[in-house]
């Protein structure tokens, strides 16, 4: 077990270090779609990974502050909403301090998601998704429909396809989540801690 955990930690660590290397950053951030739709999710996944591997005593220590995963899901939605601001997307390319903040906050959002999701149960998960997903749809639609470029550093074609992808992804996520509810039935309704 110990061996397995160590191995998994290493994968997560490799992912984070890999993403933070300048060539990987420049490659992913040169294109708006890669930046928002590949780099962001990978960082969140790396965070989720860490969250799942968090030792139990830590989870127990945190749980009084995170009943039903409420705090964790709030953190996750706050962080993701911030990184949808066009200004942030532009400035992160030229401000190293903001770039560091982006990496840390997205990782934290991932950790928060991982330790909060199951505890949240259907209702609070639904509340979280009902906040984040429509926001994604709206931002996507804004990117798609804006007559001017919202990010100075990205081409308008990239802005449009990012917008379209955000709209599709958010709708897809809503469908998947609803389907998972029907597949699992009432089981998910039981709150686990």
């Amino acid at each position: 077990m110990v061996k397995k955990i160590r191995f998994s930690w290493q994968i997560s660590l490799i992912l984070i270090v890999g993403l933070s290397l300048p060539p990987a950053r420049h490659f992913l951030e040169a294109d708006m779609r890669m930046h928002m739709l590949v780099q962001f999710p990978l960082l969140i996944i790396a965070g989720v990974w860490i969250g799942l591997l968090l030792p139990n005593y830590l989870k127990i220590k945190l749980s009084p502050y995170n009943r039903y995963g409420i705090t964790g899901l709030l953190i996750a939605s706050s962080v993701t909403s911030f990184w949808m601001i066009p200004l942030a997307l532009d400035e992160v390319l030229v401000l190293p301090s903001l770039e560091i903040a982006k990496f840390i906050s997205l990782l934290v959002a991932g950790v928060a998601l991982a330790i909060s999701w199951r505890a949240a149960g259907f209702l609070i998960q639904g509340f979280f998704l009902a906040n984040v997903l429509p926001m994604m749809t709206v931002v996507g639609w804004l990117y798609l429909a804006a007559p001017l470029r919202l990010c100075n550093a990205y081409l308008s074609s990239q802005q449009e396809s990012t917008g379209l992808a955000l709209v599709y992804l958010s709708i897809l996520a809503i469908i998947v989540w609803l389907m998972s509810f029907f597949v699992q039935g009432q089981k998910t309704d039981a709150v686990e801690l």
Binding site: L87, A88, L148, L150, C151
Partner: peptide, 12 residues
């Protein structure tokens, strides 16, 4: 960050 919800893009 948005200077009181006034600034959302680099242009602004």
């Amino acid at each position: 960050y948005t200077q009181g919800l006034r600034v959302f893009t680099k242009e602004q």
